[in-house]
Amino acid sequence: LDMDCLPYGWEEAYTADGIKYFINHVTQTTSWIHPVMSVLNLSRSE
């Protein structure tokens, strides 16, 4: 699993305190969880 590779439309950013988060420019949303990890967690719960 390549954690450096973000899906299309996603960008890694940091808060003023240096905390990493992710921006989805396609849906105009943000997430604290890496988008690949959130997809993996969803697929495990099914």
Rank of each mutant, 00 (worst) to 15 (best):
L1Q: 15
L1I: 14
D2M: 10
D2C: 05
M3W: 05
M3Y: 09
D4T: 08
D4A: 07
D4E: 11
D4V: 04
D4C: 10
D4I: 06
C5V: 11
C5E: 14
L6S: 03
L6D: 09
L6G: 04
L6H: 02
P7H: 06
P7R: 04
P7I: 00
P7L: 05
P7S: 02
P7N: 05
G9E: 11
G9Y: 03
G9L: 06
W10I: 07
W10M: 01
W10F: 03
W10V: 06
E11L: 04
E11Y: 01
E11G: 03
E11A: 04
E12W: 04
E12D: 01
A13Q: 06
A13M: 02
A13E: 01
A13S: 08
A13G: 04
Y14P: 00
Y14N: 00
T15E: 02
T15L: 01
T15D: 08
T15V: 02
T15C: 00
A16F: 04
A16L: 06
A16K: 14
D17G: 04
D17R: 05
D17T: 03
D17K: 07
D17S: 06
D17P: 02
I19K: 15
I19M: 15
I19E: 15
K20A: 05
K20Q: 01
Y21I: 01
F22G: 04
F22S: 02
I23Q: 03
I23A: 04
I23M: 04
I23C: 01
I23H: 02
N24H: 10
H25E: 08
H25A: 01
H25N: 15
V26N: 08
T27H: 14
T27K: 12
T27D: 12
Q28K: 13
Q28E: 08
T29H: 02
T29V: 15
T30C: 12
T30S: 15
W32H: 00
W32R: 09
W32Q: 02
I33W: 04
I33Q: 13
I33E: 15
H34G: 03
H34W: 00
P35D: 01
V36H: 14
M37R: 15
M37N: 15
M37W: 05
S38G: 14
L40Q: 13
N41F: 00
S43C: 08
S43F: 08
R44N: 12
S45A: 11
S45M: 00
E46F: 10
E46A: 08
E46Y: 08
